[in-house]
């Protein structure tokens, strides 16, 4: 209520202080400036997305499309019935629905990666913000340098480290710790999660760092002054105030990882593949664009709903806080 009143008051004061001149000519200027960008996004995003959604209701037989609407593709993805026409590109030993399994695996991998990345990143952001005094800029620079390497090579280098004859296995064998190369660390979901948590680290650290930097240090002193120990103070003041950065970091990591293609392809082995690999197969080798489109639309829906959930939880959390 008080917020609404304040807003109304500042609204009334605006002409004097903020002096927003908003004649019809201003609206026209704004729209003119906006039109190239908006037109571009309309042409190259809205129409292609629309076409993809439309295509997900089609079916394909070699090079001809059947454009009468069908739910066949979605049925193939979400029901237990196995579609007849897919063959064992991914191995015919699958007994459950492969598409659904890949979608759910992508979701769980990306959620897991998000959680792992945030947990690993938060202490670093906290350390740089609260304990580094002089060289904050240098630390941030050091954190970002590795990520100016090609993404493909960064991922591939983890294969060099974790591979069957990779750095880890070779070193452990040379030290006599193990007799045979470990297989659990390569070509598996673990390898995918580790690699992705590395690949997205700075994108998690930076937003958290920024939100920690914004915290007025006197608030922490006030909490201490009012009797909070370091741990209570962290959970009652620091963490809540850093929450916007944490949520931003979560979205920044979650959204691209669910659609990641390179990491599962290079490090996932047979059991670690994700939905992007299947989408690519459908578009290139499998030659079933409608099914590929349906897979893309399904993963888009998952991304959208989880993202909305993140944002909604954050809003609810912020609103619940006494202001």
């Amino acid at each position: 209520m008080t917020v609404a009143l304040d807003e109304a008051a500042s609204e009334a004061a605006r002409p004097q202080t903020k002096r927003k001149a908003r004649g019809p000519s201003d609206a026209r200027r704004g729209l003119t400036l906006m039109s190239p960008v908006f037109g571009y996004a309309l042409l190259l995003l809205a129409i292609p997305l629309g076409a993809t959604i439309a295509m997900s209701f089609w079916s394909q037989d070699f090079l001809t499309f059947d454009r009468s609407g069908t739910l066949e593709n979605y049925a193939a993805i979400w029901t237990d019935d196995m579609p007849d026409h897919w063959t064992g590109i991914f191995g015919s030993y699958w007994t459950e629905n492969l598409y659904r399994a890949l979608l759910l695996r992508s979701l769980s991998v990306s959620l897991f990666v998000t959680a792992a990345t945030l947990l690993l990143a938060f202490p670093i952001a906290y350390y740089v913000s609260f304990h580094v005094r002089k060289n904050k800029g240098l630390w941030i620079f050091l954190i970002t340098i590795p990520f100016w390497t090609s993404y493909l090579l960064r991922v591939f280098l983890w294969k060099v480290i974790l591979g069957y004859e990779g750095v880890v296995n070779a070193s452990l064998m040379a030290l006599g710790v193990i007799d045979e190369p470990l297989t659990s660390i390569n070509y598996s979901i673990n390898a995918v999660v580790l690699t992705l948590a590395h690949a997205w680290a700075p994108f998690a650290i930076l937003p958290i760092f920024v939100s920690l930097e914004k915290i007025d240090r006197s608030l922490l002193e006030a909490a201490e002054d009012l009797g909070d120990g370091p741990i209570r103070r962290f959970f009652r003041v620091t963490l809540p105030l850093a929450m916007p950065g944490v949520v931003a970091a979560a979205l920044i990591v979650f959204i691209p990882t669910i659609g990641d293609y390179v990491t599962p392809k290079l490090l996932g082995g047979k059991d670690g593949l994700m939905i992007s690999n299947m989408i690519e197969v459908q578009f290139k080798k499998g030659n079933d664009q409608p099914l590929g489109s349906a897979l893309a639309v399904s993963s888009m829906m998952i991304v959208a709903s989880i993202s909305v959930l993140f944002v909604w939880m954050n809003r609810k959390y912020l609103r619940a806080r006494p202001s």
Binding site: L45, M55, M300, V303
Partner: peptide, 17 residues
């Protein structure tokens, strides 16, 4: 919007059109 779309979706959508 492209900021919050996995890149594979953008790729798929564009190749479709």
């Amino acid at each position: 919007l492209p900021l919050v779309l996995p890149e594979i979706i953008v790729g798929v959508a564009m190749i479709n059109i």
